[in-house]
């Protein structure tokens, strides 16, 4: 347990620092798409939802898993699509496609 946990904690801490480094460089212009886009990324929990819903270990877990899939998919699909909708509006010159 300890070794695996330590490795996971390493990843957690390093990913946090990576996140700080990358995201401080995002300009305020794009902060709203950053939020909705990173939001969609937090829908990664769909992985857990799929595993939980598909392993057939009792109706309670399956129902919890089903609701988790629905919520996570709304998060993923809604998040990415709405971010794309916003980003395609940002243009350098008027009328630019």
């Amino acid at each position: 347990m300890t070794e695996a946990l330590l490795a996971a904690l390493y990843i957690f801490v390093i990913a946090m620092f990576l996140g700080f480094a990358v995201i401080t460089k995002v300009p305020p212009l794009l902060h709203t798409p950053l939020m909705s886009g990173s939001n969609a990324i937090s829908g990664i929990t769909i992985i857990g939802a799929l595993i939980v819903a598909g392993r057939q270990e009792g109706w309670l877990q399956t129902i919890l898993g089903l609701i988790a899939i629905i919520l996570a998919m709304i998060n993923v699909v809604g998040g990415y699509l709405v971010t794309d909708r916003m980003l395609q509006m940002f243009k350098r010159k008027p009328g630019e496609k």
Partner: peptide, 17 residues
């Protein structure tokens, strides 16, 4: 690990904002 990495990235983003 994918959950840990993606979750940390979003956490960092939210904290910075």
């Amino acid at each position: 690990n994918a959950l840990i990495i993606a979750g940390s990235l979003v956490g960092a983003s939210g904290i910075i904002l």
